[in-house]
């Protein structure tokens, strides 16, 4: 039994193990996730449904659902998985997990998988309200495109959340996530559609990951094409956030010594 010949368990096996147990942990305290599901659903119910000009127009209503869906995914990822990581780090179990024979990769991947799964759940109330109370419609092909689009939207914000969570204490992380989420959401056109933006804001907006995510989501569900470069913008942010997340994880040595 020589150590040199024994390798750690395969990457994806461990990633799935971590994703599974994180999912179980989350589902046993569902209130944290429910809070994230509620806000976008209420926003749709109170701000979109009563505006019949939007709600009765299939294209505008579908875009509004996609827009708030993007926000739901973004806030699930940043809160549950950004702030969640910093809270986990404060628990003594976290340093223990770091002594197990797995590197940073499988645990981060496990969190990403789990985050994507919860993002799908976050969309359920929006889809139900949009379907029952507005003229929003979707074809099966576009529904499939939306399904594929969710991870594309979720992953960059998950990675940003992880980078924040591994770098900051939980109190600081909550503040930073709030200060990031709402300006990004607003400037990305998740509350007001970008058609209402002045040109200077629209120009800045197109460089933001939230705007790119929104336009890609709207394109997926309505076929209304995203601006040129949206995919490049979101992939570039994803790469940057991935690098920041890995860097923050590597630097982290658990809690400080006192």
């Amino acid at each position: 039994m020589s150590t040199l010949t024994v390798r750690p368990r395969p990457f994806w096996t461990l990633a799935v193990v971590h994703a599974r147990f994180q999912f179980v942990e989350t589902i046993r305290i569902p209130i944290a996730v429910l809070g994230n599901l509620l806000f976008p659903a209420l926003a749709l119910l109170f701000f979109v449904v009563p505006q019949r000009a939007v709600a009765d127009d299939p294209l505008a209503a579908t875009a509004a659902v996609a827009q708030l869906g993007t926000f739901a995914v973004m806030s699930t990822c940043l809160f549950s998985f950004g702030v969640g990581v910093s809270e986990d780090r404060a628990m003594p179990f976290d340093p223990f997990l770091r002594t197990l024979p797995a590197g940073a990769g499988p645990r981060l991947a496990g969190r990403v998988i789990n985050g994507v799964v919860w993002s799908y759940f976050a969309l359920v109330p929006l889809v139900v309200i949009g379907w029952l109370l507005t003229a929003a419609t979707i074809t099966p092909v576009r529904a499939l495109a939306a399904f594929v689009m969710v991870p594309v939207v979720a992953v960059p914000f998950l990675l940003l959340g992880l980078a924040i969570g591994y770098r900051l204490t939980s109190k600081a992380a909550i503040a930073v996530v709030q200060a990031t989420l709402f300006p990004l959401a607003f400037a990305g056109g998740l509350f007001l559609p970008p058609e209402m933006f002045p040109t200077w804001l629209d120009a800045i907006s197109k460089l933001l990951p939230s705007r790119a995510a929104r336009d890609l989501a709207v394109q997926a569900v309505t076929g209304d094409p995203a601006y040129a470069g949206a995919l490049v913008v979101i992939l570039a942010w994803t790469a940057l956030f991935a690098a920041l997340a890995v860097l923050a994880y590597r630097r982290d040595e658990g809690r400080r010594f006192h």
């Binding site: 150590t3 040199l4 024994v6 390798r7 179990f93 223990f96 002594t99 590197g103």
Partner: peptide, 28 residues
Amino acid sequence: LFGGDPRDAASRIGLGTTPQDTGLPPTL
């Protein structure tokens, strides 16, 4: 650790440690 750098996951295959008992994930 077993001749390798303990920061490499592969070096830790033969290692077992205890968590502090106050820190077990309460819902699992």
